[in-house]
Design a protein around this nucleic acid. Structure first.
Length: 109
DNA sequence: GCAATGACTGGTA
DNA sequence: TTACCAGCCATTG
């Protein structure tokens, strides 16, 4: 069931769907999570298939800046999800998702 | 198969 | 903090 999607795209989109509310992942993190490609390739998949009902707004740059196409829309949804924001950027220190839904948050300090 | 493109990332000034 | 450059690799024509 690739629907024209490549394995790389399917893997990337699958991860984006798994990102829980209040958390975000950077393009590079997703690339490593799927085990293929880099931030560039992940972004390419989002641009081509990220227009789905996917939580694309939970995918941000390593700097914390949201998607460049609709940053206002992203920030709007991020706030609705309770994502820790830092002005008009995401607080990667607290919002970055490790891919583990375990509730045991380790002390950052 | 080759060349060009891109929703990225880290380092330096 | 802001701005610019080089490296990275899957997707596209």
């Amino acid at each position: 069931m690739d629907d024209g999607l490549t394995e790389h795209a399917v893997a990337v989109l699958a991860v984006v769907e798994k990102i829980p509310p209040g958390r975000v992942m950077s393009y590079g993190d997703i690339a490593e999570y799927v085990g293929s490609g880099t931030g560039r390739t992940v972004g390419a998949v989002m641009s081509r298939h990220g227009h789905d009902p996917l939580p694309w707004h939970r995918v941000v740059q390593s700097s914390g800046n949201p998607a460049p196409s609709q940053p206002e829309e992203a920030l709007r949804r991020l706030r609705a999800d309770g994502t820790p924001l830092r002005g008009d950027k995401v607080d990667m220190r607290k919002a970055r998702w490790d891919g583990v839904e375990s509730g045991g948050e380790g002390s950052d300090g």
